[in-house]
Design a binder for these strands. Structure first.
Lengths: 347, 347
DNA sequence: TTGTAGGCGTTATCAC
DNA sequence: GTGATAACGCCTACAA
């Protein structure tokens, strides 16, 4: 009892050797007991555990990691933390990882490939057991993931993905979603559409554009390059877009915006310019951000299951790490999306 | 050269011993060279580094951690990831940590003390060098932080804080902000106010309430318990609040809501009930969420510098860890807030 | 069922 | 300036 107090108060770290000594057994036995190894008698286990608690033993993860060459840690790289979609995604991942006893090391690329590279390298050196990535806006080279693949560290892309050998992706069918969004605008009577999206190097924007084109073609309408505007979807670009629309030969009466956030800023600006929504112009967004149902008029959008994607990403990676299902053969997991019709396209 | 290829292709991890062998020096020399130790000749350093690159040497963090008994990792516990305030805060923290070469292990308590306890314990065992915490909704006991304090692992509370010995806090002056919000409503002519806030065990809600009371008192108005409603600020509680307001003896003409998110849901519901804002009722929120400037009418609110708080928290903890300024004497850092007047209180 | 001893890869303290 | 050698704390064949 005195010993206990001394150890704790002195802050001296207690190791399995200390336990071994006080118990009169070997360190190996202590280690095995603590890890519930089958070859140890229940009685011994109990004794060990009791004393461990009494002495305030804390297992040293650093030593465990070194010994096992794994860290029980999953790395995550997202473009930015402060977006509702990304944080919802992370919430899903964290929930699963936490339940499975894994820690999450989270970093943001701030939409820059350079930072993404650095983060990938850092996480690699930190010894993460797996990596989850949603690509930056401008990532065009993928060498920074080569280490992972070469060393068979599982790598999953989420949402903003790229096809790399032996890497899974978790996505929705952006092309089909884009088609449905556009078809809805056409069905509502729009004649002259504009698609506003981000960098078409990114699958999400490229696929939605493709769906947009599909929908036009499906109605024998021709796609013209004036029907498409690429922007980085930063709110301060709204004015440029409004000006672009004002200069259009045929007035634009339907907008498909690849992000709810940008769409709501467009709505605000259009209202200021005295556009009537949906009478003069109809708008469809993307993501089903909470804001889409709060703005006036409420915004028709595509539901994007961020939380579920996170959950799924977490589950996939964990079960892989635990030696359950092997992800290798799995190429892509596609989640269900849904068009949500609201006031911005429907009086 | 052959050796190089063999090593890399075979995936065999290269250690300082391998380098030592090929270089004909000792492992110690290699280690020192790699760490730019002053007592090594520039020539040797160069040789070592060259060979290290050639062989594709990667330092093993697990071993470094074990040897140094530190992880270059900072733990973070937030109530939830998927809130714009929290993710903005995290964005700030991550930026600083990343720049300083620290990793962030992020976990969420999901507003539950139990989960917060578990997370605190897990992070402790993971060997984080420091911990940043924003408390859960219902945390009333703080024993789970005792380990940190006892072992002198720096601990900083952010936003939702608690005063613990030797722990710093990063906050805004919620009381003063609450005062200003309320005073603004009164100055706009409101006669019968309602404050809607969360658990008053949490400093943020308690202090704002205090400020609310201060403002009433300042004008010789008396505070009545019917002027205050405690709720968990979940959007689905809006109906209850609306009903409460309907049953009020004197019609409520001013609302101070401790969260923008809840406030905008209130606005939506009130509009549906045909309240005119700001004519019939004026509303002030809290946080300056992006949505507050997008809703109709735009919402008067208190600007809450989440990103700056994150930056500051990061800087404080890093400079402490790097042995710079000592946080011990620092008790609380208070950031500047600001009342932002918009349409919901002002025609 | 338990003990022994080597290994995990670095760092750090002595010597020389 | 460099080389031995002992930590760091745990895991795990291999023995007993």
């Amino acid at each position: 009892m005195l010993n206990l107090c001394n150890n704790i108060v002195m802050g001296k770290r207690i190791t399995i050797y200390d336990l071994a000594k006080t118990l009169g057994v070997s360190a190996g036995t202590v280690s095995r007991s603590l890890n519930d190894h089958p070859s140890i008698s229940p009685k011994t286990k109990e004794r060990v555990i009791t004393v461990a608690n009494e002495l305030g033993y804390k297992t040293n993860k650093f030593a465990v990691n070194l010994s096992k060459q794994k860290s029980n840690t999953i790395g995550v790289i997202v473009p930015k933390l402060n977006s509702i979609f990304m944080s919802t995604l992370l919430a899903g991942i964290e929930k699963i990882a936490n339940e499975a006893g894994y820690n999450l090391i989270i970093s943001q690329s701030l939409e820059s490939m350079e930072k993404e590279k650095i983060n990938a390298k850092t996480l690699y050196h930190s010894g993460v057991d797996a990596l989850l990535v949603s690509l930056a806006y401008d990532t065009s080279n993928f060498d920074h993931f080569a280490h992972y693949i070469r060393n068979k560290i599982p790598l999953i892309f989420i949402d903003r993905v790229h096809n790399l050998p032996n890497c899974s992706t978790i996505i929705i069918n952006n092309r089909l979603a884009g088609f449905e969004a556009t078809e809805h605008l056409l069905a509502q009577g729009c004649k002259n559409l504009l698609y506003i999206g981000g960098n078409i190097k990114r699958n999400v924007y490229c696929d939605r554009l493709q769906g947009f084109k599909d929908a036009l073609e499906n109605r024998q309408l021709k796609f013209d390059k004036t029907n498409f505007l690429e922007t980085d979807l930063a709110p301060n670009n709204v004015d440029t877009v409004i000006r672009y629309m004002g200069n259009s030969k045929n007035p634009i009466d339907g907008l498909f915006v690849a992000s709810d956030n940008f769409a709501v800023h467009m709505i605000k600006a259009l209202k200021k310019e005295n556009y009537k929504i949906p009478q003069d112009i109809k708008i469809v967004g993307f993501n089903n951000d909470p804001i889409s149902d709060l703005i006036t008029p409420t915004l028709t959008t595509i539901n994007y299951p961020g939380y579920e994607m996170g959950i799924l990403a977490g589950q996939s990676i964990i079960s892989h790490l635990n030696g359950g299902i092997n992800l290798q053969p799995t190429n892509a997991i596609t989640l269900r999306h849904k068009l949500i019709i609201r006031e911005s396209t429907h009086k």
